[in-house]
Simulated scan of single mutants.
Amino acid sequence: MPEHLPRYEVLLDVERHDCPCCGGALHAIGELRTEQLDIVPAQLRVRVTRRPRYACRACEGAVVVAPAPERPIDGGMATEALIARVVVGKFCDSAQAQMLARQGVALDRSTLRSDVYVRRVGRACWWLTPLYDLLVGTALSAAKLFADDTTLPVLNPGRGRTKTGRLWCYAVDDRPWCGPSHPVAAYVYTEDRKGLRPAGRLAAFRGVLQVDGYPGFKRLAGDRADASVGLAFCWAHMRRYFYEFHVSTQSPLAAEVLAQIQALYAIEGQIRGHPAKHRQQARQERSRPVVEALHTWLQAHLGRVSATSDLAKAIRYALRHWSGLTVFLDDGRVEMDSNVVERAIRPVALNRKNALNRPGFVGNCNQVAVSSR
Rank of each mutant, 00 (worst) to 15 (best):
M1Y: 15
E3K: 06
E9G: 03
E9Q: 12
V10N: 08
V10F: 00
L12A: 15
C21T: 12
C22S: 06
E35S: 12
L37M: 09
A42Y: 11
A42N: 04
L44S: 01
Y54D: 09
C56M: 05
V64Q: 11
V64I: 11
V64S: 04
A68W: 03
P69T: 00
E70I: 05
R71L: 14
R71A: 14
I83V: 05
G89D: 02
K90T: 09
Q98H: 13
V105W: 06
L112N: 02
L112A: 04
D115E: 13
V116Y: 14
R119S: 09
G122N: 02
Y132T: 05
A142S: 15
A143V: 00
A143S: 09
F146C: 15
T151N: 03
P153D: 12
L155M: 07
G160S: 01
T162C: 12
T162H: 15
D173K: 02
G179E: 12
S181V: 06
S181P: 00
H182Q: 15
P183E: 09
A186C: 02
V188F: 11
Y189W: 11
R197A: 14
P198E: 05
R201G: 01
A203S: 09
A204Q: 12
L209V: 09
G216T: 07
G216C: 13
R224C: 11
R224Y: 13
A227F: 06
A227N: 07
A227W: 04
S228Y: 05
A232H: 11
F233D: 07
W235V: 07
Y241A: 10
Y241S: 11
E244P: 03
V247K: 13
Q250C: 14
P252R: 10
I261A: 10
A263P: 01
I267T: 00
E268K: 01
E268P: 00
Q270K: 15
G273D: 05
Q281D: 14
Q284R: 14
E285W: 00
H295I: 00
L298F: 06
Q299P: 02
G303S: 09
G303C: 09
G303M: 07
A307H: 13
A318L: 03
L319M: 05
L325C: 03
F328T: 00
F328C: 05
D331L: 00
N339F: 11
E342S: 02
I345E: 01
V348Y: 08
L350G: 01
N351R: 12
N357E: 08
P359A: 07
N364M: 08
Q367Y: 15
Q367E: 14
S372A: 10
